[in-house]
Simulated assay, not measured.
Amino acid sequence: MEPLIPRDRAQIAPGAVHVPDWLSPAEQHAIVIACRDWATGPVPMRAARLPGGQRMSVRTVCVGWHWQPYRYTRTADDAGGARVVPFPDWLVRLGRRALTAAYDDPVAASRYTPDTALINHYDDQARMGMHQDKDEKVREPVVSLSIGDACVFRFGNTETRTKPYTDVELHSGDLFVFGGPSRLAYHGVPKTFPGTADPATGLKSGRLNITMRVTGLD
């Protein structure tokens, strides 16, 4: 494993910025409550099935658009067929705040309008292999929020799943944004650290990762 970088605000690659401790404990708790509500319906949280038949080790629920490997739909055709809940305005505002924090460009951030979020829950055994977020029709930045157990977030290059990459330790409340030249960088989560979650967030165990995206779909 590559050496972990210090927990300071850092540009990991062009367009990829890590902002530690960005969410307050109160904000984390409020997001956990919202995620818990989304996870109980109308589309339940589930482990998505990949085209090869195996299920992902993370469990996912979506808002705005439903994601299944590898497309977006308004209805959860692989999880009961219900329509996903609308993307909330408060999450749009949070996404714009995140872009301002990462890029220090309030004008550009004010135009950022995410319309879907994937909420992934990692238990002690869950991992995420190296992949690109490329099912969207546009290449607006991805805003990633972490709550609960810490993890190793592996951020790579745009050409291959292998090196070069950088391992970043993400803790509860951290923000990670990637766009521009790094928008299609391969990334994954090879390791989590069970038992590191702060119960004050409302999440007793595991890790929640909320990723906001702009689909470019009508």
Rank of each mutant, 00 (worst) to 15 (best):
L94E: 03
V168A: 00
G148F: 02
F176I: 11
T166K: 10
R154G: 11
V17G: 07
P106A: 02
T113F: 12
I147M: 06
H121N: 01
P6A: 01
W67C: 05
S172K: 13
L23C: 11
A34C: 01
R161P: 12
R49A: 07
A197G: 11
R74L: 14
I33Y: 03
A102N: 10
M128F: 00
T196L: 05
D37E: 15
I12L: 14
N209M: 06
V168E: 01
Y70F: 14
G15D: 06
A34H: 14
F178C: 02
T201Q: 08
T166M: 02
E159H: 13
A98V: 08
Q54D: 12
V107F: 07
A76M: 10
L184Y: 14
N120L: 08
G95P: 09
F176E: 01
I119S: 02
A101E: 15
K191D: 12
W90E: 13
C62T: 14
P106Y: 09
H131S: 07
W90F: 14
A30T: 05
N157S: 13
S172W: 04
R183I: 09
I12N: 06
M212R: 04
V61A: 05
A10W: 04
R139V: 09
D198V: 03
P14K: 04
T40E: 15
I119V: 15
Y103S: 01
P14Q: 01
D78A: 10
H18D: 01
V61I: 14
Q54I: 03
Y122C: 04
L208K: 09
C151P: 06
H187A: 02
D174N: 08
A197H: 10
P164I: 03
D104C: 05
P3L: 02
T211G: 05
T100D: 14
S57D: 11
